[in-house]
């Protein structure tokens, strides 16, 4: 895929494809990170919960990719998932960070699900493309559950044992510099807003902060300083070193055996 061209979409269709890919890439990469917990969850029940969430998110990505492929004239959703390199992935850095311990995974899930919740809510009220809207409405129900599940865990880990409290505080402190990208807007976002293809996410930042702050306070966790350095640029291809390793694992089979089929 030609990176330069896709970063400067000319038509409304190209712009729409970029928006779909940004949404999808966030969800595929975080879904993959969650899937790494399969068989390693702290409890059997939580193992299932994490796998369920992973499947939900990969499902969201798959639907978004399929729609993008339709508009973009690409063969199918696999084209985007398996045959692009790290520079072409448009996900934010937050979702590509290694899965860490359970506290880290849950803290990230909570931050991302809260962001998804407000983003999807606003997008549903805005978009006029029926297929896109239907997709968002369907996924929104699952996002609400992801938010509820991760939020309940934050309360229990934060206000749980001394160890769980320390681990969770450390997770939020490490993650915070990657939260800025969720609300960073670039030219592409601005153009998409003009075409009613995307919402001004900077507007829901305050609601996000309020939800996150009140949850962390209830969990006796300190809210990290929001004025600290924030990572930026992953949507343009400036990823952390971790994405390459993730893609190597995720894409290996499909690239080595392009004709492989489920039998």
């Amino acid at each position: 895929m030609n990176t330069i061209q896709t970063m400067n979409p000319q038509t409304k269709e190209e712009l729409f494809v970029e928006i779909l890919l940004r949404l999808a890439d966030d969800r595929l990469i975080l879904g993959h990170r969650l899937s790494e917990w399969a068989g390693h969850g702290p409890e059997l029940e939580e193992d299932l919960a994490l796998a369920n969430t992973a499947l939900d998110m990969i499902g969201h990505a798959s639907a978004l990719y399929a729609y993008a492929a339709d508009i973009d004239g690409k063969p199918d959703e696999d084209h985007y998932a398996y045959f692009r390199d790290d520079l072409d992935f448009k996900n934010i850095a937050l979702v590509e960070l290694p899965k860490g311990d359970f506290a880290f995974t849950i803290a990230r899930q909570f931050l991302f699900s809260a962001y998804s919740y407000f983003l999807y809510r606003d997008l549903i009220g805005l978009v006029d493309d029926d297929q896109f809207k239907g997709m968002l409405q369907k996924h929104f129900k699952e996002i609400k559950y992801h938010l509820r599940h991760s939020r309940e865990w934050i309360l229990r880990l934060g206000d749980g044992t001394e160890t769980s409290h320390i681990k969770l505080q450390k997770a939020f402190d490490e993650l915070w510099m990657y939260t800025g990208e969720m609300f960073a807007m670039d030219n592409l976002d601005q153009k998409a807003i003009e075409h009613s293809l995307f919402t001004d996410v900077s507007k829901c930042k305050e609601e996000w902060i309020n939800l996150v702050s009140s949850t962390l306070e209830e969990a006796t966790i300190n809210v990290p300083d929001n004025n600290q350095y924030m990572y930026n640029g992953a949507r343009k291809g400036l990823h952390t070193e971790h994405l390459g390793y993730l893609l190597a694992q995720m894409q290996f089979l499909r690239r080595s055996y392009p004709d492989a089929e489920w039998k």
Partner: peptide
Amino acid sequence: SVHAPDAEMALQNARDTYTR
């Protein structure tokens, strides 16, 4: 049955284990 630390998490674990 499921294991869970409290009622709310029991409900969520039940949802994830038995209503998929």
